[in-house]
């Protein structure tokens, strides 16, 4: 088992006419991912570039003809809201948004629209996710991952790769690695993904990579303390970042000291999470947590 995606996931790529989208589609296919269709309003051909993937101008057709159950979005930011809504209207339940720079207001609307539904949105502004050896949905470099039992959740792409490299070298393979993205409003939060890992028998421990800003790490700490049954190790980036150059008083009034690295680290420690000082510590921390 794994979470969200596996070897039977059938992925449609929205925004497949661009160079970037096609490069990553070919990388995913090489990894063994089932890419069933490419969608782009600009398509005038039957196939996506040089790839053996059918091309469509609307997602509806791809869902009808190829039973796509997952959508991967590369659409440029100004059109991403439209693309995500298209996926939602087509009944897609797993939507992975790689696009960077989507206006906060657009994501707020999407979040409210999907509130209470069983739709899983990962991203935006994320590297996607990977279930090693089975399926890669996104832009992660497949070769550094190894099949195993560590679940990884991260707000940052390259920091994920850095840590996964350490895990893999230490013989700690991964069940699924999820990049939840660095935007203020995320499709899935740490808590959403932790819930999935909690229910996944193949995940024995979780690595959480957070950073300053927002209170999702603090919410995750509450969830871990009260409900999570597996060991967790974490790293929080941004300890040395200067306080944000914020303007006005409203931000200070509502944040009231929350969201700093210190606040996150202490919340996680209080919840029993092993917090690494530098990334190199993560693999050892997970090992000792697993041996407890």
């Amino acid at each position: 088992m794994s979470i969200i995606i596996n070897s039977s996931s059938r992925i449609a790529v929205q925004g497949a006419a661009g160079v970037e989208g096609q490069f990553h589609m070919s990388e995913m296919i090489k990894y063994g991912t089932k890419i069933v269709a490419g969608i782009d309003p600009a398509f005038q051909t039957d196939k996506v570039g040089d790839l053996d993937v059918p091309a469509y101008t609307t997602l509806k057709k791809a869902v009808e003809e190829h039973n796509a159950d997952t959508s991967l979005i590369f659409v440029p930011a100004p059109f991403a809201y439209d693309a995500i809504m298209e996926a939602l209207y087509c009944g897609i339940k797993k939507i992975i948004v790689i696009t960077e720079g989507i206006p906060v207001n657009d994501m707020m609307k999407i979040k409210q629209y999907t509130k209470g539904s069983d739709v899983v949105i990962v991203g935006p502004n994320c590297p996607g996710l990977i279930t090693p050896g089975e399926c890669k949905a996104g832009i992660l470099p497949g070769h550094i991952f190894k099949k195993g039992s560590i679940g990884v959740i991260s707000r940052s792409g390259t920091l994920t790769y850095e840590i996964v490299q350490h895990l893999t070298e230490a013989g700690l393979g991964q069940s699924t690695c999820v990049g939840i993205g660095g935007d203020p409003v995320q499709g899935s939060t740490f808590v959403d993904i932790l819930k999935q890992f909690n229910a996944d028998d193949d995940t024995k421990a979780v690595v959480m990579l957070g950073e300053i800003g927002g209170v999702e790490e603090e919410k995750a700490a509450d969830y871990i303390r009260d409900h999570f049954t597996k060991p967790v190790a974490a790293f929080i980036a941004g300890k040395s970042a200067p306080p944000g150059k914020t303007m006005g008083h409203a931000g200070a009034i509502i944040s009231a000291g929350k969201g700093t690295a210190e606040a996150k680290i202490s919340a996680l420690k209080e919840a029993g999470v092993a917090v690494a000082v530098i990334p190199d510590d993560i693999a050892d921390l997970i090992k000792s947590e697993l041996n407890k």
Partner: peptide, 12 residues
């Protein structure tokens, strides 16, 4: 490359 790794680099 990458905001998270950039912050981590500063931290290290």
């Amino acid at each position: 490359n990458g905001a998270g790794l950039a912050m981590t680099t500063m931290d290290v």
